[in-house]
Amino acid sequence: MSFESVKKHLKQWNRDQDIMEFDTSSATVELAAEAIGVIPARIAKTLSFRGEGDNAILIVAAGDAKVDNKKFRHTFGFKARMLSPDEVFEQTGHEIGGVCPFGLKNDLAVYLDESMKRFTSLFPACGSTNSAIEVTLDELATYSSAKGWVDVCKNWQESINEEVPAVQAVNSK
């Protein structure tokens, strides 16, 4: 059902036919990168946090980025607390491993992390543990109705110089 809600959501932009489905799991950054044939940093992972009130907030970040608690608290004004798998499903309608900012069950605030800006395209999941779609940064912002860009992650800046040549090598194949 989750995959179908994402497909229906992406149909608005005639992108539903561009969803890739794999015979193997793409439920983790590493598995998704292997299934697609890209470096893990190009996987756009969607992280679910407790927001203020009843709704969660989603942060979409590069696959090699980790949430920085200080930056998160400074940006949002509250502590970063991830949702349990049951809460993720309840809020997004997607199971862990297929969570994406598309076709959501609830109207959630989506933010895009700066860690993704070093790439021209990324690969978020599409509501199942064996799917993804390649999108540009602008498409990701549009399709997710993102509220904006934030800088709440760490550990990706050190690898910028290493990652860019790898991306160029992947894109030139």
Rank of each mutant, 00 (worst) to 15 (best):
S2P: 04
F3I: 08
E4I: 11
K7H: 04
K8G: 10
K11L: 00
W13V: 10
N14F: 00
Q17S: 15
D18E: 15
D18W: 00
I19S: 07
D23M: 09
S26C: 07
V29H: 03
L31Q: 15
L31W: 09
L31P: 08
A32P: 07
A33H: 12
A35S: 15
A35Y: 04
I36A: 04
I36T: 06
G37C: 05
I43N: 04
A44V: 05
T46L: 00
L47P: 04
L47F: 03
S48C: 15
G51K: 10
L58T: 08
I59V: 15
V60E: 12
A62P: 13
A62K: 09
D64S: 12
A65E: 04
K71M: 15
K71E: 13
R73L: 15
K79R: 14
K79A: 12
A80G: 08
S84Y: 02
P85C: 02
V88N: 02
V88Y: 01
F89D: 04
Q91W: 10
G97Y: 00
G97S: 03
P101Q: 08
G103Q: 08
G103C: 10
L104F: 11
L108R: 02
D113A: 01
S115N: 08
M116H: 05
K117G: 07
F119L: 04
F123N: 03
G127R: 04
N130I: 07
N130L: 10
S131V: 06
S131N: 07
S131L: 06
I133N: 02
I133H: 02
E134L: 00
E134R: 00
T136N: 08
E139G: 04
L140T: 05
L140E: 05
L140W: 02
A141C: 10
Y143I: 03
S145K: 11
K154N: 12
N155T: 13
W156D: 09
E158Q: 13
N161T: 14
E162K: 10
E162H: 03
E163M: 10
P165Y: 01
V170E: 13
V170R: 07
S172N: 14
